[in-house]
Simulated assay, not measured.
Amino acid sequence: MALQNLGYSDQELAEGPYAEFYNPEIGAMQEQVKEALLARNQAHELFPPVEEAASMVEPGYWPVETGYTRAPDSAIRVFCLTKMPRVTPAMWDWWFGWHGCEARRYKLWHPKAHIEAKWADGRDDEAYIGRTSLITEYLGPNIAKAGISFLPPSAMCFDERRLAAQGEVVVCARVGMPGSPLKAGWLLHQLRPVEGGSEMRSRMWMGGANSAIGEDPGALARGAIRMLRPVASTLLPDPAELLVHNAQEMAHLAGFLPELHARFGPEAKRQAA
């Protein structure tokens, strides 16, 4: 797939419904990301495993909020904190359902990396939990394809009533290979309100014990994936490139998400009805 699949065409810029929100320039990375890239691969003990994800509902922070590591089982763990002035958690909850309906929306998120997104079920409604988004994008210099299967927060043991009481949104997903039962890992974005806006705490646990064959693998599948893990670890993305990609796309979209939400979000639809 060629680079011309990136970005908006001249016609989309002239006539597309989202053209005023398309900004091909990605701003500088936030300071915590720059520091993490200088630190490079850190001790895996500083990065809790996926089994501790639900503890993110507690106040405070983990030992490392932005950085990456390789665990002893060859898994990678990539964490990223993104500061988002003016943004509410509800805006991101809306975005995750809205963006997957067409490539032009997906390209707003990261104009230098995103190529295509579509729902596996072919529907164009704006829900995301219980659905799989088929994405094509650049990770570093390489094109990657993935199936992002969104799950309710309870699937990762979050107390959903407590999240609601705290005004938080947690987006949870299994990351798989399109057309395959292989699940490469877990993806999580926690949005919690802070003074002046929100912060996103992203978590990616990929490879190693995070891999599985199917949603509820039996003994045979569990044995097979254990044998495949050494090979599968060589197919994982570079954790530094994954950190950069996440940091860029989240900060970029946050810069205009309030205006985008005001134009196309639920309130705009109610007023137009």
Rank of each mutant, 00 (worst) to 15 (best):
A2R: 15
Q4K: 14
L6N: 02
Y8G: 00
S9R: 11
D10T: 15
E12S: 01
L13P: 08
E15P: 06
G16A: 03
P17N: 03
A19W: 03
Y22E: 04
N23W: 12
I26M: 11
G27R: 05
G27L: 07
A28Q: 12
M29L: 15
V33N: 01
E35P: 03
E35Q: 14
E35L: 10
E35M: 12
A36E: 08
A36T: 04
R40W: 08
N41W: 05
Q42M: 08
H44E: 03
H44R: 08
E45W: 08
F47P: 03
F47G: 03
A53D: 12
A54M: 11
M56I: 11
V57F: 06
P59W: 13
Y61I: 07
W62H: 10
P63W: 02
G67S: 07
G67V: 07
A71G: 04
D73H: 07
S74A: 15
F79A: 09
F79N: 09
L81K: 13
L81Y: 09
P85N: 14
T88V: 10
F96P: 04
C101T: 00
A103L: 00
R105K: 11
K107F: 00
A113T: 09
E116V: 02
A117Y: 00
K118W: 00
W119L: 07
A120H: 01
A120S: 11
D121Y: 02
D124H: 00
D125F: 06
E126P: 03
I129W: 01
R131F: 09
T132V: 02
L134R: 04
T136R: 15
G140P: 01
I148S: 00
S149P: 05
L151G: 01
S154M: 09
A155S: 15
M156Q: 14
F158V: 03
F158E: 12
R161K: 15
L163R: 09
L163T: 03
Q166V: 10
E168H: 12
V171L: 15
V175C: 00
V175Y: 07
M177F: 15
M177D: 10
S180N: 13
P181V: 01
P181S: 08
L182G: 06
L182E: 02
G185D: 00
L191R: 05
P193Y: 02
G196Q: 06
G196E: 09
G196F: 09
G197L: 10
S198E: 02
M204P: 01
W205R: 01
M206P: 02
M206F: 05
G207N: 07
A212W: 00
I213S: 08
G214R: 06
G214D: 01
E215W: 13
A219D: 14
A221E: 13
R222S: 03
I225Q: 06
R226H: 13
R226P: 05
M227Y: 11
P230A: 08
A232H: 11
S233K: 04
L235Y: 15
L236G: 05
L242G: 02
L243C: 01
V244N: 04
H245M: 05
A247N: 05
A251P: 06
H252R: 10
A254W: 09
L257C: 14
P258Q: 09
H261P: 06
A262S: 13
A268I: 05
Q271C: 12
